[in-house]
Design a protein around this nucleic acid. Structure first.
Lengths: 348, 348
DNA sequence: CTGGTGTGTGCAAACGTTCACAAAACTCTT
DNA sequence: AAGAGTTTTGTGAACGTTTGCACACACCAG
């Protein structure tokens, strides 16, 4: 038993134990070449004998990298974010990185504050999920050349690495599916219009209408914010229209749940009276009644890919920005059907 | 404009700019007494002029505390954990702490590895949510006198700070409610039996049965693990019994969703044919069809309280362990009704 | 004018690493 | 068997902060 049983074991202690200099211990620690296998072995056993654990603070202060990635999200507790984080962690763990979590809970100012501290050594890189007002700090980040990747947001310029889903395509596919079922009046509840993904989905919706010769009716579009009440309120407004839609396409599943709530409260049936289409395919989508037809976003894969891109950039800072759009696909369940059949059934 | 436009601004730069020594800057930074108000002012303006941000790594290396709290959870993406984290962050943010996130994804070995690195300076304290096999490292933590608080788990000894919900009481209340509706055969799908909360809920269930003179039938208890498939499988098994239950009490909402799935697949109705009771009251519970009657756990409050306890302990290490149990309460929705009414309705 | 008691400030040494550079120890050549 | 080249190891100075100690100065009582 060595003298230092309590307190912290440092590389100096390990060096003494192994009979080498602390530099050699550091080399072993960092898997540097040019260490005689026998010496390495001796250091390694000394480490385990002493129960040595590297001090990340010191390492990062001296060496410049902290093995920590910052994650900026606006909220947790949704499977949307859960799936993304699952992907992130899956890539981070084998690379020995830790995850520092910042949630902004929609308080816009907080994001820029976090970014400042993060870039001061606490983290080596940053993953930003669906920022609310990226303009405020993305430029700061870019100028300071701090590595980061955006998830589900295209950012303010082409110079920014980003992983997104094919939102336009998803919006198009969803709308086209409803059109092909026979719907002509299709309501849309948008996401936060300050976010590109929401705008893209709306554009996809418009494009599908246009391609099938259906005139765009602004009355049928309600601005939402990706939260359930917006889906509910938007749907109530749509159903109160003189000529209400026979189908509602919500810009995400959560708002689609709100839509379902509203439709039921109006004593209408899903999908007999009104069809509902979501976006995301979060796990709950298959659990609600009726199971929600929706557009699947590869959330976990988005997290994985963004992380891979970030780590790649960390290894080689020369790598330029990369922008990847992952495909979305239609998941047909039971919340959509051709219009008018509800009445027919009820009447027959 | 000063010379150092790029790179990092240190206290030395600030000191030069303000015409004081770096020690004084450090004093201002830490709000130490004995700094002339005028000097303090001068340092402060120098800081903002230079855009100084403190380097947490250096601060923590020199000073001993990192202003980071580690959070150990086994999975994200459920509102269960989302609510807890919301509570944690609400308390952490004003105290200027950051959150380092570790998810174990049910891989038991990882937890102990994390604990080792965490205690080496990366974090000042640890919050552990519902650990899988705490025995492995809780003892290590206790011995090294590292501050931590358990959430939703009572730990291995009375010496451990923990915040839990009244699980026994919740199990009792849920079961008693079903009994009072008239159910006599009540199935129970347990959580992971290696966790105290799961055992407590089961014990509450048994106690309620006993208090109402209903003999305990082991056939009616299916072991689960808090995940949806377990709810599904357990329910299928229960419904295949020669004398199946008329109500099912799942140890959490997510398994209750699985139960609902299974019941529907057997062409039975909820609650007419089988009543379903959950536990947790996650937001989805009110959204499923029919809305789930469940036992509410004050998850956000549990996160808040645990964090307050941890910060308190950080301020005064002499504080001993505290164990708090927050109350649970029954939320009546529409997934439970008296037994036998389903047939009556169908026949009438 | 001296000696005390504060206050405000500065110096130097930590904290535990990494890294550039230098030195030492090998391995080949010839 | 010596010199060149290569591998291995060690020394010293960072990294940016906190903190113990010492010092300068003002103030007051004697």
């Amino acid at each position: 038993m060595t003298k230092k049983t309590s307190g912290n074991v440092t590389i100096v202690d390990v060096a003494r134990e192994a009979g080498v200099s602390y530099t050699t211990v550091s080399r072993v620690l960092n898997n540097k070449e040019n260490v005689k296998p026998e010496t390495r072995e001796r250091v390694l056993t000394a480490m385990t004998r002493l129960g040595y654990v590297v001090d990340q603070r010191a390492r990062s202060l001296a060496g410049g990298h902290s093995q920590v990635i910052g994650l900026l999200v606006h909220d947790l507790g949704t499977s949307y974010i859960g799936l993304i984080i699952r992907g992130i962690e899956a890539e981070l763990a084998p690379a020995q990185y830790d995850l520092l979590l910042y949630t902004t809970h929609r308080r816009k100012t907080k994001e820029s504050v976090y970014v400042a501290t993060l870039t001061r050594g606490l983290a080596d890189g940053l993953l930003i999920v669906l920022p609310r007002n990226p303009g405020a700090y993305l430029e700061t980040l870019r100028v300071s050349n701090f590595p980061y990747v955006l998830i589900d947001h295209r950012g303010v310029s082409e110079e920014i690495s980003a992983v997104t889903a094919a939102n336009w395509q998803g919006g198009y596919t969803a709308t086209e599916y409803l059109i092909k079922l026979g719907h002509r009046r299709i309501g849309h509840i948008t996401g936060s219009m300050d976010q590109g993904c929401a705008r893209d989905r709306l554009e996809g919706y418009k494009a599908a209408l246009a391609d099938h010769g259906i005139p765009f009716d602004p009355e049928l579009v309600q601005e939402g914010d990706f939260f359930q009440p917006a889906g509910y309120n938007g749907t109530r407004a749509l159903l109160n229209l003189p000529d209400p839609p026979t189908a509602i396409f919500a810009a995400n599943d959560v708002m689609a749940f709100g839509a379902m709530e509203a439709i039921r409260e109006c004593n209408l049936r899903i999908p007999e009276d009104v069809s509902v289409m979501g976006f995301d395919d979060i796990p709950e989508a298959s659990r609600v009644h009726p199971p929600l037809t929706t557009i699947q976003q590869p959330l976990e894969e988005m997290g994985r890919l963004a992380t891979r891109m970030l780590l790649e950039r960390l290894r080689d800072p020369a790598i330029g920005p990369r922008r990847v759009e992952l495909p979305t696909r239609l998941i047909v369940r039971q919340s959509c059907q051709p219009p008018g059949r509800g009445n027919a059934q009820a009447g027959g």
